[in-house]
Design a protein around this nucleic acid. Structure first.
Length: 272
DNA sequence: AATCGTTCCTGATAGC
DNA sequence: TGCTATCAGGAACGAT
């Protein structure tokens, strides 16, 4: 499941291969995966790519004239770029062609992801409701204190709330809470200043690790980089998908519970 | 305003 | 060529 580090990796690679290329066409194989009218495609045909950016878990391909191609990969989306040769498979939903013969394949097994043409990013609702970026200077202990103090929801749920913090999903929420020694189920308002300080640092540390290793291509998850190769962060998981294995700190066996409908991994001895 | 349950979709897996 | 039920999950949406 692509989260901040995976999307950051995708944007970094796409930026290198797409910048300066001109879009020659878009083929929509699955209408559900393309939000909006097919005729909007003419607004981007012939436009050059200025750059590729990330906001939360969203990918923004900025084109000449301020028009953007925005993409959310949700659970199983992939973006794969090939300079030549066909690469479509049964999960290919949209194909964007470029003037160098290259093609960008949007594959998505479960069809939860989408691709959308946006004339002005400011008009995009999903953007306006997006929370603070973990690597921005507003992501302070005081900010976390503010959002935590208002709710007794489990802290893990709050970390994954995109309207509060942008980009953290299930993998990195689990990882950060283990790193910080805080129980995922702990009501957010019951975290003290020191705990919040430690948690903030843990979040930044695991996200940086995720980026450093090119994201996590975990078992039965679809994420790969745009060149088709997997990330390596799964080889460094601290707690995620380690159910039944010994805690890396205290050897207690890692537990798995369901929290807010999501698989939650933790050490009941180290995380309180 | 905050929060909860439901829904979208497909493939893997378990149980019979 | 087995069929069916269950599960996984980001986030929009409707209901409370």
């Amino acid at each position: 499941m692509p989260e901040l580090p995976e999307v950051e990796t995708i944007c970094f690679q796409l930026n290198r291969v797409l910048r300066g290329l001109k879009i020659t066409g878009v083929v929509v194989l699955s209408p559900k995966s393309f939000v909006g009218e097919i005729r909007e495609i003419r607004e981007i045909r012939g436009k050059r790519v200025i750059g590729v950016e990330r906001r939360g878990k969203m990918i923004i391909i900025e084109l000449e004239g301020g028009v953007c191609l925005t993409i959310h990969l949700k659970l199983t989306g992939q973006l794969i770029f090939r300079e030549k040769g066909k690469l479509s498979n049964k999960y290919t939903r949209v194909i964007v062609s470029f003037d160098n013969g290259g093609k960008l394949y949007f594959n998505d097994l479960r069809k939860f992801g989408w691709i959308k043409i946006v004339r002005d990013l400011r008009e995009m609702r999903e953007m306006g409701e997006m929370g603070v970026e973990p690597f921005d200077k507003e992501f302070t202990v005081e900010y976390l204190q503010k959002i935590f103090s208002r709710t007794s929801r489990p802290v893990k749920i709050v970390l994954m709330d995109q309207e509060k913090i942008a980009g953290i999903g299930n993998i990195y929420a689990n990882e950060a809470l283990w790193e910080a020694g805080i129980s995922p189920a702990k009501p957010a308002k019951r975290l003290g200043y020191n705990e919040i300080t430690i948690l903030r640092e843990a979040i930044l540390r695991v996200l940086r690790q995720g980026i450093k290793y090119g994201g996590a291509s975990a078992a039965d998850e679809a994420y790969v980089k745009p060149n088709g190769s997997p990330g390596e962060y799964q080889e460094h998981f601290l707690v995620y998908q380690r159910e039944g294995q010994p805690c890396l700190r205290c050897k207690t066996l890692i537990k798995r519970v369901n929290l807010g409908g999501r698989g939650t991994f933790y050490c009941e001895k180290c995380q309180n």
